[in-house]
Amino acid sequence: MKQYRWLAYPYAVWMMIFIVVPLLLVLFFSVTAKTPDGSMVLTLENFKKFWEPMYISVLIRSVLLAVYSTVICLVLGYPLALILAGKDFKRKNVLVMLAVIPMWMNFLLRTYSWMTLLEKNGTINAFFGTLERLAATYLNMELTLPRVNILYTESAVILGMVYNFLPFMILPIYSVVSKLDRSLIEAAQDLGGNNLVVFKRVIFPLSLPGVLSGITMVFMPAVTTFVISRLLGGAQFMLIGNLIERQFLFSGDWGFGSALSIILLLLILLSMGFMSRYEQENGGGGLW
Protein backbone atom coordinates (compact mmCIF):
# COMPACT_ATOMS: atom_id res chain seq x y z
CA MET A 1 0.00 0.00 0.00
CA LYS A 2 3.09 2.20 -0.25
CA GLN A 3 1.67 4.12 -3.19
CA TYR A 4 -0.83 5.79 -0.88
CA ARG A 5 1.82 7.78 0.98
CA TRP A 6 1.13 10.92 -1.01
CA LEU A 7 -2.34 11.06 0.53
CA ALA A 8 -0.72 12.44 3.68
CA TYR A 9 1.03 15.32 1.94
CA PRO A 10 -1.90 17.75 1.83
CA TYR A 11 -2.32 17.33 5.56
CA ALA A 12 1.43 17.69 6.09
CA VAL A 13 1.26 21.08 4.39
CA TRP A 14 -1.87 21.99 6.36
CA MET A 15 -0.12 21.05 9.62
CA MET A 16 2.84 23.24 8.82
CA ILE A 17 0.67 26.26 8.08
CA PHE A 18 -1.99 25.89 10.76
CA ILE A 19 -0.30 24.05 13.62
CA VAL A 20 3.46 24.55 13.53
CA VAL A 21 3.71 28.10 12.20
CA PRO A 22 1.08 29.53 14.60
CA LEU A 23 2.90 28.08 17.60
CA LEU A 24 6.19 29.48 16.31
CA LEU A 25 4.43 32.84 15.96
CA VAL A 26 3.41 32.71 19.62
CA LEU A 27 7.02 31.95 20.54
CA PHE A 28 8.22 34.75 18.24
CA PHE A 29 5.89 37.37 19.71
CA SER A 30 6.79 36.34 23.27
CA VAL A 31 10.50 37.06 22.82
CA THR A 32 10.35 40.18 20.67
CA ALA A 33 9.30 43.75 21.16
CA LYS A 34 8.68 46.60 18.80
CA THR A 35 11.03 49.53 19.15
CA PRO A 36 9.61 53.01 18.63
CA ASP A 37 11.10 53.16 15.13
CA GLY A 38 9.12 50.08 14.13
CA SER A 39 11.82 47.39 14.05
CA MET A 40 11.67 44.20 16.09
CA VAL A 41 14.22 43.37 18.78
CA LEU A 42 14.82 40.21 20.75
CA THR A 43 13.96 40.69 24.39
CA LEU A 44 12.85 38.86 27.50
CA GLU A 45 10.93 41.92 28.65
CA ASN A 46 7.58 40.12 28.32
CA PHE A 47 8.62 37.33 30.63
CA LYS A 48 10.15 39.79 33.09
CA LYS A 49 6.86 41.64 33.23
CA PHE A 50 5.23 38.47 34.49
CA TRP A 51 7.33 38.54 37.68
CA GLU A 52 5.24 41.32 39.13
CA PRO A 53 3.31 40.24 42.26
CA MET A 54 0.03 41.10 40.55
CA TYR A 55 0.57 38.59 37.74
CA ILE A 56 2.19 35.92 39.90
CA SER A 57 -0.85 36.00 42.17
CA VAL A 58 -3.10 35.40 39.14
CA LEU A 59 -1.05 32.32 38.26
CA ILE A 60 -1.18 31.06 41.84
CA ARG A 61 -4.93 31.63 41.99
CA SER A 62 -5.49 29.74 38.72
CA VAL A 63 -3.47 26.78 39.93
CA LEU A 64 -5.13 26.78 43.36
CA LEU A 65 -8.68 26.92 41.99
CA ALA A 66 -7.86 24.15 39.53
CA VAL A 67 -6.40 22.04 42.35
CA TYR A 68 -9.45 22.66 44.57
CA SER A 69 -11.89 21.68 41.86
CA THR A 70 -9.82 18.63 40.90
CA VAL A 71 -9.80 17.46 44.53
CA ILE A 72 -13.54 18.04 44.89
CA CYS A 73 -14.21 16.18 41.63
CA LEU A 74 -12.08 13.28 42.85
CA VAL A 75 -13.81 13.13 46.23
CA LEU A 76 -17.28 13.27 44.64
CA GLY A 77 -16.51 11.20 41.56
CA TYR A 78 -14.46 8.32 42.91
CA PRO A 79 -17.21 6.82 45.09
CA LEU A 80 -19.72 7.29 42.29
CA ALA A 81 -17.49 5.48 39.80
CA LEU A 82 -17.03 2.62 42.27
CA ILE A 83 -20.75 2.35 42.95
CA LEU A 84 -21.62 2.44 39.25
CA ALA A 85 -19.05 -0.27 38.54
CA GLY A 86 -20.44 -2.41 41.36
CA LYS A 87 -23.39 -4.74 41.23
CA ASP A 88 -26.04 -2.44 42.67
CA PHE A 89 -27.58 -1.40 39.41
CA LYS A 90 -28.89 -3.53 36.61
CA ARG A 91 -28.84 -0.98 33.84
CA LYS A 92 -25.34 0.34 34.35
CA ASN A 93 -24.89 1.59 30.82
CA VAL A 94 -27.92 3.82 31.14
CA LEU A 95 -26.59 5.35 34.36
CA VAL A 96 -23.17 5.98 32.85
CA MET A 97 -24.90 7.58 29.87
CA LEU A 98 -26.84 9.76 32.29
CA ALA A 99 -23.61 10.89 33.89
CA VAL A 100 -22.34 11.95 30.50
CA ILE A 101 -25.39 13.57 28.89
CA PRO A 102 -25.01 16.97 30.58
CA MET A 103 -21.64 17.24 28.88
CA TRP A 104 -23.27 17.10 25.50
CA MET A 105 -25.18 20.26 26.18
CA ASN A 106 -23.38 23.42 25.23
CA PHE A 107 -21.12 24.18 28.16
CA LEU A 108 -21.89 27.87 28.09
CA LEU A 109 -25.53 27.07 28.66
CA ARG A 110 -24.54 24.74 31.51
CA THR A 111 -22.52 27.49 33.11
CA TYR A 112 -25.29 29.97 32.50
CA SER A 113 -27.72 27.71 34.34
CA TRP A 114 -25.68 28.21 37.52
CA MET A 115 -25.92 31.95 37.09
CA THR A 116 -29.68 31.68 37.28
CA LEU A 117 -29.50 29.41 40.32
CA LEU A 118 -27.00 31.42 42.34
CA GLU A 119 -28.31 34.90 41.66
CA LYS A 120 -29.45 37.03 44.57
CA ASN A 121 -33.06 36.61 43.45
CA GLY A 122 -32.21 33.27 41.95
CA THR A 123 -33.91 29.94 42.24
CA ILE A 124 -32.11 28.70 45.35
CA ASN A 125 -32.86 31.82 47.37
CA ALA A 126 -36.44 31.92 46.13
CA PHE A 127 -36.81 28.31 47.25
CA PHE A 128 -35.57 29.19 50.74
CA GLY A 129 -37.97 32.12 50.81
CA THR A 130 -40.89 29.84 49.93
CA LEU A 131 -39.89 27.44 52.69
CA GLU A 132 -39.85 30.29 55.19
CA ARG A 133 -43.29 31.48 54.13
CA LEU A 134 -44.72 27.97 54.29
CA ALA A 135 -43.31 27.48 57.76
CA ALA A 136 -44.80 30.77 58.87
CA THR A 137 -48.30 30.03 57.53
CA TYR A 138 -48.69 26.36 58.34
CA LEU A 139 -46.43 25.71 61.32
CA ASN A 140 -46.54 29.15 62.86
CA MET A 141 -42.80 29.03 62.99
CA GLU A 142 -40.36 31.87 62.56
CA LEU A 143 -37.87 30.26 60.19
CA THR A 144 -34.82 32.12 58.94
CA LEU A 145 -32.76 30.32 56.37
CA PRO A 146 -29.43 31.66 55.17
CA ARG A 147 -29.26 33.20 51.72
CA VAL A 148 -26.83 32.00 49.11
CA ASN A 149 -24.75 34.89 47.93
CA ILE A 150 -21.79 33.42 46.12
CA LEU A 151 -22.29 34.52 42.52
CA TYR A 152 -19.20 36.47 41.38
CA THR A 153 -16.95 34.92 44.02
CA GLU A 154 -14.27 32.24 43.98
CA SER A 155 -16.74 29.68 45.35
CA ALA A 156 -18.99 30.15 42.34
CA VAL A 157 -16.05 29.63 39.97
CA ILE A 158 -15.05 26.43 41.79
CA LEU A 159 -18.65 25.25 41.71
CA GLY A 160 -18.82 25.93 37.98
CA MET A 161 -15.60 24.00 37.35
CA VAL A 162 -16.75 21.04 39.44
CA TYR A 163 -20.10 20.99 37.69
CA ASN A 164 -18.57 21.15 34.23
CA PHE A 165 -15.70 18.72 34.75
CA LEU A 166 -17.09 16.11 37.16
CA PRO A 167 -17.96 13.65 34.35
CA PHE A 168 -14.32 13.79 33.18
CA MET A 169 -13.36 12.37 36.57
CA ILE A 170 -16.13 9.78 36.77
CA LEU A 171 -15.65 8.25 33.31
CA PRO A 172 -11.98 7.20 33.35
CA ILE A 173 -12.21 5.82 36.89
CA TYR A 174 -15.39 3.95 35.99
CA SER A 175 -13.88 2.43 32.87
CA VAL A 176 -10.80 1.20 34.78
CA VAL A 177 -12.71 -0.15 37.78
CA SER A 178 -15.39 -1.86 35.70
CA LYS A 179 -12.71 -3.82 33.81
CA LEU A 180 -11.03 -4.87 37.06
CA ASP A 181 -10.48 -8.59 37.40
CA ARG A 182 -13.13 -9.67 39.94
CA SER A 183 -11.14 -12.75 40.92
CA LEU A 184 -8.42 -10.55 42.41
CA ILE A 185 -10.96 -9.06 44.80
CA GLU A 186 -12.36 -12.47 45.63
CA ALA A 187 -8.85 -13.82 46.21
CA ALA A 188 -8.10 -10.97 48.59
CA GLN A 189 -11.34 -11.67 50.45
CA ASP A 190 -10.57 -15.39 50.61
CA LEU A 191 -7.19 -14.60 52.06
CA GLY A 192 -8.96 -12.88 54.91
CA GLY A 193 -8.88 -9.23 53.92
CA ASN A 194 -11.82 -7.20 55.23
CA ASN A 195 -13.49 -4.62 53.01
CA LEU A 196 -11.15 -1.83 54.01
CA VAL A 197 -8.03 -3.90 53.41
CA VAL A 198 -9.34 -5.14 50.06
CA PHE A 199 -10.05 -1.58 49.03
CA LYS A 200 -6.71 -0.24 50.24
CA ARG A 201 -4.49 -3.01 48.93
CA VAL A 202 -6.32 -4.16 45.80
CA ILE A 203 -9.04 -1.92 44.42
CA PHE A 204 -7.45 1.45 44.99
CA PRO A 205 -3.98 0.62 43.61
CA LEU A 206 -5.55 -0.95 40.54
CA SER A 207 -7.82 2.03 39.95
CA LEU A 208 -4.90 4.50 39.99
CA PRO A 209 -4.51 4.71 36.18
CA GLY A 210 -8.13 5.86 35.99
CA VAL A 211 -7.62 8.32 38.82
CA LEU A 212 -4.55 9.76 37.13
CA SER A 213 -6.24 10.30 33.80
CA GLY A 214 -9.25 11.74 35.63
CA ILE A 215 -7.03 14.21 37.44
CA THR A 216 -5.38 15.22 34.16
CA MET A 217 -8.72 15.59 32.40
CA VAL A 218 -10.11 17.86 35.12
CA PHE A 219 -7.00 19.84 35.99
CA MET A 220 -6.04 20.81 32.42
CA PRO A 221 -9.30 22.45 31.36
CA ALA A 222 -9.75 23.94 34.85
CA VAL A 223 -6.40 25.70 34.85
CA THR A 224 -6.84 27.09 31.34
CA THR A 225 -10.49 28.15 31.47
CA PHE A 226 -11.42 31.74 31.03
CA VAL A 227 -15.14 31.41 30.41
CA ILE A 228 -16.27 29.93 33.71
CA SER A 229 -14.36 32.60 35.60
CA ARG A 230 -15.78 35.29 33.35
CA LEU A 231 -19.41 34.23 33.76
CA LEU A 232 -19.47 33.06 37.37
CA GLY A 233 -16.59 35.14 38.73
CA GLY A 234 -17.62 38.45 37.22
CA ALA A 235 -15.86 40.79 34.85
CA GLN A 236 -13.02 41.61 37.23
CA PHE A 237 -12.18 38.01 38.16
CA MET A 238 -8.74 37.10 36.85
CA LEU A 239 -7.40 33.68 36.04
CA ILE A 240 -4.46 33.19 33.74
CA GLY A 241 -6.86 32.49 30.87
CA ASN A 242 -8.62 35.80 31.45
CA LEU A 243 -5.28 37.56 31.60
CA ILE A 244 -4.28 36.13 28.21
CA GLU A 245 -7.61 37.01 26.66
CA ARG A 246 -7.31 40.55 28.00
CA GLN A 247 -3.86 41.04 26.46
CA PHE A 248 -5.15 40.11 23.02
CA LEU A 249 -8.60 41.65 22.99
CA PHE A 250 -8.28 44.72 25.22
CA SER A 251 -4.73 45.87 25.82
CA GLY A 252 -3.39 44.76 22.45
CA ASP A 253 -0.16 43.66 24.17
CA TRP A 254 0.49 40.62 22.01
CA GLY A 255 4.01 40.15 23.33
CA PHE A 256 2.90 39.80 26.92
CA GLY A 257 -0.10 37.68 25.92
CA SER A 258 2.16 35.33 23.98
CA ALA A 259 4.58 35.12 26.90
CA LEU A 260 1.66 34.21 29.18
CA SER A 261 0.57 31.52 26.71
CA ILE A 262 4.08 30.07 26.70
CA ILE A 263 4.01 30.03 30.51
CA LEU A 264 0.62 28.31 30.46
CA LEU A 265 1.93 25.74 27.98
CA LEU A 266 4.95 25.06 30.18
CA LEU A 267 2.67 24.64 33.17
CA ILE A 268 0.58 22.10 31.26
CA LEU A 269 3.63 20.23 29.97
CA LEU A 270 5.12 20.18 33.46
CA SER A 271 2.01 18.74 35.07
CA MET A 272 1.64 16.21 32.25
CA GLY A 273 5.23 15.13 32.66
CA PHE A 274 4.69 14.85 36.39
CA MET A 275 1.59 12.72 35.89
CA SER A 276 3.19 10.38 33.39
CA ARG A 277 6.22 9.86 35.64
CA TYR A 278 3.94 9.07 38.52
CA GLU A 279 2.06 6.68 36.30
CA GLN A 280 5.24 4.84 35.35
CA GLU A 281 6.36 4.53 38.95
CA ASN A 282 3.05 3.02 39.88
CA GLY A 283 2.40 1.15 36.69
CA GLY A 284 2.24 -2.61 36.96
CA GLY A 285 3.94 -2.90 40.31
CA GLY A 286 1.05 -1.26 42.10
CA LEU A 287 -0.41 -4.52 43.19
CA TRP A 288 2.67 -5.71 45.01
Partner: peptide, 10 residues
Protein backbone atom coordinates in the same frame (compact mmCIF):
# COMPACT_ATOMS: atom_id res chain seq x y z
CA UNK B 1 -6.94 29.23 24.41
CA UNK B 2 -3.39 28.80 23.09
CA UNK B 3 -4.64 27.20 19.86
CA UNK B 4 -7.08 30.09 19.52
CA UNK B 5 -4.57 32.89 19.96
CA UNK B 6 -1.92 31.15 17.85
CA UNK B 7 -4.36 30.92 14.95
CA UNK B 8 -5.40 34.50 15.51
CA UNK B 9 -1.74 35.56 15.27
CA UNK B 10 -1.41 33.55 12.06
Amino acid sequence: IVTGISLMLL
